[in-house]
């Protein structure tokens, strides 16, 4: 059964010992909605729960770079023609290959690196436009107060409650602020459980097979490139 955001906010207000869930005295429903969205964002950042696959076009002319969709938080994995590319970082890639060189092209790239959180860098450059499926951590659409389904598994909605209660107690200051830290720790416990469930699907552990890479690079070892 779907859990609505209004239901969660009502329970948060009850836990804060307010007499009215419609007109709370010390907190407004609007500010709790902000914290609700913060909670969903943070549990997503910890657990990698909300993922999507963006189609990104790799081009020969964009100097190994490709931009991601604006609603993605960060790239998690990249596949081309159904095969996952190997994840690296720019420093390691620089040590292994001279990825800007003219001959570093192939029909299918093999390696990708995060370029900040908004772009990816791939190697080799493609010889022609190529569609890549980029698994991204997705920013949720901000929810509002009402009959709006929580964009989270039902069994983890209590974590969002904990986050909001903790956040509200921070506003109180003093002893209540200190007590709210314990409530935030409960949120973290739940987020870690969800993270554990998602661990296996977060990052692919395999790499592109040699058969899918372009033959133009076949036989060129790193040593043959000379390095520095």
């Amino acid at each position: 059964m779907a859990i609505f955001t209004s239901t969660v906010i009502n329970q948060v207000i009850r836990r804060l010992n307010e007499l009215s869930i419609t007109v709370p005295v010390h907190w407004t429903r609007a500010e709790i909605v902000t914290w609700l969205n913060d909670a969903i964002t943070e549990i997503n950042l910890i657990s990698g729960e909300l993922q999507d696959i963006d189609s990104v076009t790799l081009t020969p002319t964009n100097q190994n770079l490709a931009a991601l969709a604006s609603d993605s938080i960060a790239p998690l994995a990249v596949s081309v023609d159904g095969k996952y590319l190997q994840r690296s970082n720019i420093g390691d890639l620089d040590n292994d290959v001279e990825f800007e060189e003219d001959d570093q092209v192939a029909s299918v790239p093999r390696v990708w690196c995060a370029f900040g959180t908004t772009q990816i860098l791939h190697w080799p450059r493609v010889t022609a436009n190529k569609a890549a499926a980029v698994t991204v951590l997705q920013q949720h659409t901000p929810v509002t107060d009402g009959a709006v389904e929580m964009p989270l598994r039902d069994e983890y909605v209590q974590c969002v409650e904990d986050f909001c209660v903790s956040r509200a107690m921070f506003k109180e200051g003093g002893a209540e602020f200190q007590q709210g830290i314990e409530t935030y720790n409960r949120f973290l416990d739940g987020a870690q459980q969800l993270s554990g469930r998602n661990l296996l699907r977060r990052y692919p552990a395999w790499t592109a097979s040699t058969e899918t890479a372009d033959v133009t690079l076949r036989g060129k070892s790193l040593d043959a490139k000379g390095g520095q």
């Binding site: 938080i73 994840r87 970082n89 093999r110 552990a205």
Partner: peptide
């Protein structure tokens, strides 16, 4: 998220 988890060093095909 930026650093991610990398695997073995890149080796040429």
């Amino acid at each position: 998220l930026i650093r991610g988890e990398t695997q073995e060093p890149v080796v040429a095909v």
